[in-house]
Design a protein around this nucleic acid. Structure first.
Lengths: 222, 222
DNA sequence: CGGTTGTTTGACGCAGTTCAAGCGGAGTGG
DNA sequence: CCACTCCGCTTGAACTGCGTCAAACAACCG
């Protein structure tokens, strides 16, 4: 594992079509994976939290099918593909860990499909926040009931498939109902139970163990 | 690999939460992976075509995060988890193939996220059809410019996040524009170029090689 | 034949988009 | 220290894609 690179907020890390020679592990910060459409629209596919093996697939598939950008200042450690290959040769068991990582990745995407396909804006945002809380807590990145989330409403909209204007209105409803507040780059969970209910959230698809919420502990494999 | 099981149309194969002792390979037919929501709605996550290793993740993650159903009469071959384990022990290289399979799976889900999040109904259906064409052609299941697709408009709606009524109207527009026809359980591609344009389709995310379309050949790894 | 299941059509309502303008805070240069 | 600018948030109004409800229709089947 090479020394971590530091990246400024709002900078691209890798782009769709690239054939990088390294994999990346996010050490600190928040990164977004996204796809850009021809018509200018863009879809944020996922938010990645510290500890995530952020582009394992570049090693296996060679070419990237999507881009990644730092959403705030980040530290990212590269692992060369040759090092990856060596690891696999010498410790074949590790491949199961990689498999596990990539399958949880897929499970999370499946849940986004459900979220985008079936839930109205209100529940969709609630659900997205619930997932973030669970994943951040699992890696010890929650500060009490809040976390650092320096994302614009425009970007939130690109993640959940809503216009920035509508995200604004939905956020106001979430706040008015006492569920979450977003200010000064912090997302504050005011009512965890209520947020889960609003988002119809059920964290088993994250394969974290525990309920992952503010009282949970997480990170233990199932 | 055990002898293939035969399954009737519209029967569940495995259900969310199950802990099956085998993995399944689809030999013949069409299966849908789906998640059921508490409020009764359901999201079809993907259509699987013959040759697909349909629940590799049950081996790695133990528990299923979604259900699967046969959409028409199917043949499915089981592979016990212990046999999987043996394969991995004796041929560690195979793990790369499994990794590849699961990562393409994830890439496809990412594209569904984009499809649901960014495209209106018309393009969304067009895109879904394009993907099916490419994947079916790659495994030699296209009959000329058409394929067997015995799916109701209700189910199509559950796949692309639209109501059955709206699917109906969109299908009429697709037909009126000379792109596709759906009759007697067959989907007929009338204008492959046009369909790709309508769906803003670009097949690289499938990692098939070639353009995968009616004139393509597919199936060669990148 | 009647029953069941899927498709089609129409009318109506709403969630969410788009356009446009105003507002507030943070940074910059004079 | 103030003026200016920029960017993100907020608000309003008008529009529309899509959902829902309901009824008619078509195909299949026992």
């Amino acid at each position: 594992m090479g020394p971590p690179r530091r990246l400024a907020a709002r900078t691209d890390i890798v782009s769709e079509g690239d054939r990088p020679g390294t994999c990346l592990v996010l050490i600190e910060g928040l990164v977004g994976r996204y796809k850009q459409l021809k018509n200018g629209r863009r879809q944020i596919l996922s938010f990645q939290v510290p500890g995530d093996f952020v582009d394992l697939h570049s090693f296996v598939l060679g070419r990237l099918d999507h881009s990644m950008a730092a959403l705030c200042a980040c530290r990212i450690a590269p692992i060369s593909h040759s090092a990856m290959q060596e690891i696999l040769n010498e410790h074949p068991r590790i491949s199961l860990a990689f498999l596990r990582e990539s399958m949880i990745d897929a499970a999370v995407f499946r849940d986004w499909v459900v979220n985008l396909g079936q839930r109205p804006g209100y529940g969709r945002l609630a659900h997205a926040f619930c997932e973030l809380v669970c994943r951040l807590r699992a890696v010890g990145q929650m500060k009490g009931d809040s976390f650092h989330f320096p994302v614009t409403q425009e970007e939130l909209g690109q993640a959940v498939g809503l216009s920035a204007v509508h995200v604004n209105r939905v956020m106001q409803r979430l706040k008015a109902n006492g569920l979450v507040t977003h200010q000064a780059g912090q997302l504050i969970i005011e009512d965890w139970e209520g947020l889960q209910r609003a988002g119809d959230f059920e964290p088993s698809y994250l394969f974290l163990g525990g309920d992952g919420g503010p009282a949970g502990e997480g990170a233990s494999p199932t």
